[in-house]
């Protein structure tokens, strides 16, 4: 059986969570169960259809999805890090978030012996504290009928021709800042040039949307022609009839990996390993590629040719991709956020 619980979390509730997490007697039934902290929407639904139902439930394990966007779940993981019993058995987060939380000693180092599918993982994506689930690349999306000369890099967003036509998703503030840094001659470990470029972008009337969905709406109505985005999103939007094409920027970009990890205070660690194994099954991986356009993270998940052609990256494109500098991001995160909020958005 799969049930969905919704977690609403506010600042003070986060503080309270650390109080209540340690309370005895509130524990859920201890039968075979695994609590998965995840996004809702497509991602949660695909987990349910391709992992929970076909792969985990038949093993007699009940899957509970605890649904929220990433930020409150991150906060909850941090708030509970000293508690004996945590909320989650599996935490799903992006690689940058995962690294940030892992730096606070929240996660169990993975025991490869318990992970049967461990050997199938692409070596480039392997981490000691998390399993890669799916991944995609940061690209520049553009509307081919409006942007008639195909752009080649992030810097093209600053072309005055596109005044008022560049859109950003507010929740991707870190990625957006990265694109500005690269356009301004910065690097994976130096976002400083982003400041000047973002202020330039501000005077070019950039538009900011509260969510990826709102941005998709703006792309669809052709209010916006250019935006930095995950390739997988671009693929989904294209399927939904939104007029976009993509380019892997020549300045270089990073891959985003959606990962899963086991908190140290998980109460069902064995079930959690079973769940991680299921996430790495080829059938599950193929389903995410087909529906959401994310690339498999295991060597043995074949993609149908039609999909592979749309979402795979050429050798040349892969050359331009690198992993983010997690430690730099960890240190600069609040500065990036502050600049985004106080200067760029003000």
């Amino acid at each position: 059986m799969t049930t969905t619980r919704r977690a609403a979390l506010t600042g003070s509730a986060a503080a309270l969570a650390s109080l209540t997490a340690g309370l005895p007697g509130l524990a859920r039934a201890q039968s075979k169960q695994v609590v998965v902290g995840t996004w809702g929407g497509d991602y949660g639904e695909l987990l349910r259809q391709n992992i929970d139902q076909p792969l985990v439930v038949p093993q007699g394990i009940e899957v509970l999805q605890d649904i929220a966007v990433a930020d409150p779940r991150k906060t909850k993981l941090l708030a509970e890090r000293q508690a004996r019993r945590g909320t989650y058995d599996i935490a799903c987060l992006s690689d940058t978030d995962m690294h940030m939380v892992a730096a606070q000693n929240v996660f169990e180092p993975l025991e490869m012996g318990k992970l049967k599918r461990g050997s199938a993982i692409l070596p480039a994506l392997a981490k000691p504290y998390a399993v890669p689930h799916i991944y995609s690349a940061l690209v520049l999306l553009y509307n081919p009928s409006k942007v008639t000369t195909p752009p080649t890099g992030f810097a093209d967003m600053w072309d005055p021709k596109y005044r008022g036509r560049v859109g950003f998703s507010d929740i991707l503030y870190s990625t957006n800042t990265f694109s500005a840094a690269m356009a301004g001659g910065g690097s994976f470990s130096d976002y400083e040039p982003a400041k000047k470029k973002l202020m330039e972008m501000r005077s070019l009337d950039a538009r900011i949307y509260p969510s990826n969905e709102a941005l998709a709406g703006a792309l669809k109505s052709e209010e916006v022609w250019l935006t930095p985005m995950w390739l997988a999103r671009g693929f989904m939007w294209q399927k939904a009839g939104i007029p976009v094409k993509h380019v892997v920027p020549k300045e270089g970009a990073y891959a985003i990996v959606f990962e899963a990890a086991i908190p140290k205070n998980s109460r069902n660690k064995d079930n959690a390993y079973t769940y991680l194994d299921a996430m790495l099954q080829p059938s599950a991986q193929a389903a995410f590629a087909d529906r959401m356009g994310y690339l498999p993270t295991v060597k043995d998940a074949p993609l149908p040719a039609a999909i592979a052609q749309q979402i795979s990256l050429s050798e040349a494109e892969q050359e331009r991709l690198r992993a983010p500098d997690y430690d730099y991001l960890l240190k600069s995160h609040s500065e990036i956020l502050d600049f985004w909020n106080k200067q760029f958005k003000a």
């Binding site: 979390l9 409150p72 941090l78 940030m100 995160h333």
Partner: peptide, 10 residues
Amino acid sequence: VYDQFVRGNN
């Protein structure tokens, strides 16, 4: 406030 707690971790 929420931003500081949840996004900024501050």
